[in-house]
Design a protein around this nucleic acid. Structure first.
Lengths: 245, 245
DNA sequence: AGGACAAAAAATGAATGCAAAATAGCCGGT
DNA sequence: ACCGGCTATTTTGCATTCATTTTTTGTCCT
C-alpha cells in the first residue's frame, strides 16, 4: 500500500528549493523573524520566562501565531519549552558554548573546503580587500570595525561554498551564540588578536592556492582558538581590557 | 521580598541543557515526533500537500497542535509552508541533495576530528567490532545488513565526538535525506562497495592513531564518494540492480 | 465546444474560549 | 514567628470559532 492519503497528488509545482527556508511573508513568518531578533538581541534575560501575553500585546497579535513562533524558536535552540511551564530563554552552559563553537568551526571548516572548489578569483580578491580593511582596523585598535569585517570575511567564505543549506545552518548556529558574542568581546587580548591576524593570512593563502584540506584544517584551528579565547573570557571576564574610545 | 520585577527573575532552575532538544512530553511533542516519522518514512508523496484535516482525525487532535508541529517541521526543512496554500512535503532537487550530502560530510568530518580527541579504546574496539560485522555483510553480499551496520558505525563516530549539538544537527540532516536513502539504495555498484570498504579501513586506522585532521579528510572524501554514487544512481536509476522482493 | 467568469465549497490563518496545571497568596498548626 | 497545607489567580495547552483566501465547480458567452 502506497499512499494512505489518497489523491494528494499534484506532483507538480516545486517552486523553490531553498536551503533552509525563511518564510518572509505570511504574518506568522513576520512574527517569527521579529521574535527571533528580539530574543537574539538579548531583550530577555537568560533563563527568564518568555511572557506570552505581554509579547502578544507588544506585537499586537493573539497567542496562536506567537506560540507557533515559540515552537519554531525552540526547535532552533534559542529557547526551551518546559511542559506546562512555558518558554524560557535558553541558558547556555559553558559546555553548550563549547559545543556550539565546535560545530561552527566544523561548518566553517567545511565551507572553506567547499569554497576552494568553486571560488572565483574575483571573490578571492574581495576577501583580500576585506582582509586589508580588517588589518587597518587591527592597526587602529578598532575592535568594533575589526569584528564586523572579520565576520564579513567568514560570511564570504561561507557564501563562496555555494551551499545554501550550509549557509542556513551556519546562520542558525551563529544566531544561537550571537547573544554571547554581543556581551563578551573576547579576542581582547592583544596576543590573541595578533595570532588571529596571522591565522587569517594563512587562511587567505590556502584559499588562493585552493588547498581545500589545508584550509579546512586552518579554519578549524582558527575557530578552535577563538573558542578557547571566548571561554576563557567568560570564565574570567577581567582581562587587559581598556575602555573603548 | 517579592519580585518587584515581575518575571525575568528566577535565574535558577537550569534543568537540562541538552544539545538541541526533543520535547518528548507534552502531547505536542508527541505529535511532532509522530508527524516527523510519518513524513520521513515517506507516507506522503514528495511535493504533495499535507492534509491538515485528515491528519487531525488520524491523530485525534485539533488543528492547533498539528499546525504547531508543521511549523517546526518546516523549520527543520522537511516540509515547506506556502502562504495560504498549506504545507507540502519538501521536494529535494538534485542540487538540494548534493548540498545535504556535503553538509553531512562536513558534520561527519567534524565528528571524526572531535572523536579523535575524546574517544576511548573501548569505543574504538566497539567500532572495530562493527567494522568486522560489516565486512561479513559485505562478503555475504547482504546489502541491508551492510547498510545498517555502516550507519551504526557512522553514528558511533558521531557519538564519540561528545557533542550533543552536533549529534542533534546530524540527526536532523540525516532525517532530511532518509527518504532518499530508503528509495534509492545506491552503493549497489560492486566497485563502489569495495572502495567503501577500503575507505572504512582507512577511517579505522586514522581513528586508532587519533589522527584528527587525517580522519577528517578521509571522512569527508568518503562521504563525498557516497554522494557521487547516490547522485549517479538517482540520475540513472537502472544499474546492475535486480528488483527487490 | 472551449474558455472565461462567477459563485460555492473547502481550506488556511488567526482569534477566542475553555479545561487543566502551575504559581501565588492565605490561613492554620506547632 | 515559622512552616506546611489549602484555596484563588494566573498561565498554559488545546479546542473551537471566525474571517480570508484559494480551489473547485457550474454556467454563460464567444
Amino acid at each position: 500500500m502506497k499512499s494512505t492519503i489518497p489523491d494528494t497528488g499534484v506532483p507538480i509545482t516545486p517552486p523553490a528549493g531553498n536551503g533552509g527556508d525563511r518564510q518572509e511573508a505570511s504574518l506568522h513568518g513576520e512574527i517569527l523573524l521579529r521574535l527571533r531578533d528580539y530574543v537574539v538581541e538579548g531583550n530577555i534575560a537568560e533563563g527568564a520566562r518568555v511572557p506570552e501575553r505581554q509579547l502578544c500585546e507588544m506585537l499586537g497579535i493573539s497567542r496562536t501565531p506567537l506560540r507557533e513562533a515559540l515552537k519554531v524558536l525552540a526547535a532552533e535552540g534559542l529557547i526551551e519549552l518546559l511542559p506546562n511551564r512555558g518558554a524560557r530563554v535558553r541558558q547556555l552552559s559553558q559546555r553548550d558554548l563549547e559545543e556550539l563553537f565546535d560545530v561552527m568551526a566544523g561548518l566553517e571548516s567545511l565551507a572553506g573546503r567547499l569554497a576552494c572548489e568553486a571560488i572565483t578569483d574575483a571573490e578571492i580578491t574581495a576577501i583580500e580587500q576585506l582582509h586589508y580593511e580588517m588589518y587597518g582596523h587591527y592597526l587602529h585598535r578598532d575592535m568594533h570595525g575589526y569584528f564586523q569585517t572579520n565576520q564579513r570575511i567568514h560570511e564570504s567564505i561561507v557564501a563562496a561554498a555555494r551551499n545554501e543549506t550550509l549557509k542556513t545552518a551556519y546562520a542558525n548556529f551563529a544566531g544561537r551564540i550571537r547573544r554571547v558574542r554581543y556581551s563578551a568581546n573576547f579576542a581582547r587580548k592583544r596576543q590573541r588578536w595578533a595570532e588571529a591576524m596571522r591565522e587569517h593570512e594563512a587562511i587567505l593563502d590556502a584559499l588562493r592556492r585552493r588547498a581545500g584540506s589545508e584550509l579546512s584544517d586552518i579554519l578549524f584551528q582558527h575557530l578552535r582558538n577563538k573558542r578557547t579565547a571566548a571561554i576563557e573570557h567568560l570564565t574570567e571576564p577581567q582581562e587587559d581590557a581598556p575602555a573603548s574610545p
